[in-house]
């Protein structure tokens, strides 16, 4: 039977910068490939002819296997819809963002938090242990993100909870993994090794410049500097023999934009060749905190430009690109945790939230955890976070990036502004695909 093929509606096809050839990306399969100009002619002529499947050339077969071309009968919109439903109905996994304390030793100039609550209460600690003990009997994966505040102001709570989580997971063959967002000030080599033992394998640590250009933005609550100590900690961690990833995050706005290149040079000197240290650059935003009217944020056009321009500078200096960038292009890879039904933020007083930013907003107070492990949940509020994506937006439904973000990259942004929350990666997909291509080449060389 003759087959007629079509190009997938979820393809993106961009020029390789500075040379011939194209980069193909498909958001339903996550595949990325390069083709030369002859192969592109084959690809573009595809829709003009019928082909026996058995007679597809080797290249067209590979394109087919990776989702770049699909049978003309294939209902791709239905496939995208099914992907979205499967994510919404996933009950086999759980992701908790846990705040062992909401206190912080830093007072960063652009922070959105109010530091209202200190360390996690005994009642909440008991509740979390009991909740995981119960959940572990019916899930296959548990993922914990240690967050705060500054989580390393409460290392004993992290150790206590981790031991209990690991015990529950081991007893039920549940795959356990953890990551941590920390300012790095208390992440000594000894503390780091202890955390590796507790299965914390991914860390995000922020540096905003070298020395004073970092310190004026990310200082201690008493105003003292922090850069020197964080760098000393990172150097000590570099000497640890182990499997882990450190995302070095750089937050930029108009104030420190000029200081980022010298920081990239420094990071290259310190970590070039060690693929465990990776680069993640993000623009600062007005995230709803008390300092919003004093933050010199870049406008969207400027932020989009500098984000990938600076990231490219880092890659050219030999600093590996954060894996989170490539992962965000996978199917469901750009869906925010706040939009996932199996994800929850647990604050230190036992309140449950969907979003880790708007902690004080009523729509984001979605429940409470009790000491016996039971969770009171407001399903109506939760659905505001999980059901406000592609199902409400016809533009998202027809977008090539739909399988990746499902209209749910940031439900908070959509709620607050009424605008579509397109991810940074989608807005500059040409630059991002070229970055991933260059990164892949640098690994293979």
């Amino acid at each position: 039977m003759a087959h007629k093929w079509k190009l997938s509606r979820f393809n993106r096809n961009v020029q390789i910068e500075g040379q011939g050839g194209r980069i193909l990306y498909n958001s339903l399969t996550g595949a990325i490939a390069t083709i030369d100009s002859i192969e592109e002619i084959q690809l573009q002529s595809l829709s003009k002819k019928n082909d026996e499947k058995g007679k597809l050339s080797e290249i067209l077969s590979t394109l087919c296997e990776n989702g770049f071309i699909v049978s003309e009968q294939q209902d791709e919109l239905l496939q995208a819809s099914q992907l979205h439903k499967s994510l919404k109905n996933d009950t086999s996994t759980m992701h908790l963002i846990v705040m062992p304390t909401e206190a912080c030793n830093f007072r960063c100039t652009y922070c959105y938090q109010s530091f209202q609550h200190g360390s996690m209460s005994e009642e909440t600690i008991r509740g979390l242990k009991n909740a995981i003990k119960n959940f572990a009997q019916r899930i296959t994966h548990l993922s914990i993100s240690w967050f705060g505040g500054e989580p390393l102001l409460a290392p004993e709570i992290i150790a206590d909870l981790s031991a209990s989580f690991l015990e529950s997971c081991n007893a039920n063959n549940v795959v356990y993994g953890a990551d941590m967002s920390t300012n790095g000030y208390h992440l000594t080599k000894e503390r780091f090794q202890e955390l590796l033992g507790l299965h914390v394998r991914r860390f995000m640590i922020t540096l905003d410049g070298i020395g004073e250009s970092h310190d004026r933005r990310r200082k201690l609550s008493g105003g003292q500097s922090t850069y020197g100590r964080i760098i000393e900690n990172l150097k000590a961690i570099r000497d640890v023999d182990g499997l882990f990833v450190i995302d070095i995050r750089i937050n930029f706005d108009e104030q420190n934009l000029v200081n980022v290149p010298e920081l990239l040079n420094e990071l290259s000197l310190l970590f070039k060749g060690d693929r465990r240290f990776q680069l993640l650059i993000r623009p600062v935003g007005c995230w709803g905190g008390p300092q919003d009217d004093r933050i010199p944020v870049c406008d969207r056009t400027s932020a989009d430009y500098h984000l990938w321009e600076l990231t490219n500078q880092g890659i050219e200096l030999g600093i590996p690109l954060s894996e989170t960038i490539g992962d965000s292009l996978l199917p469901s890879g750009s869906v925010c945790y706040a939009a996932k039904s199996n994800s929850m933020v647990v604050s230190s007083n036992g309140n449950l939230h969907k979003c880790s930013i708007a902690l004080d907003e009523d729509t984001n107070r979605v429940g409470k955890i009790h000491s016996n492990g039971n969770m009171d949940l407001d399903m109506e509020k939760i659905s505001m976070w999980t059901d406000s994506g592609e199902e409400t937006d016809t533009v998202c439904q027809s977008c090539y990036y739909r399988p990746s973000c499902q209209g749910n990259h940031c439900p908070l942004y959509r709620m607050r502004t009424g605008k579509r929350p397109c991810p940074h990666e989608k807005r500059k997909i040409k630059q991002v695909l070229n970055l991933l291509w260059r990164e892949a080449n640098s690994i293979n060389i």
Binding site: I32, T62, E65
Partner: peptide
């Protein structure tokens, strides 16, 4: 044609 990342 060169695959940078195959379909999952």
């Amino acid at each position: 044609m060169k695959l940078i990342r195959p379909a999952i």
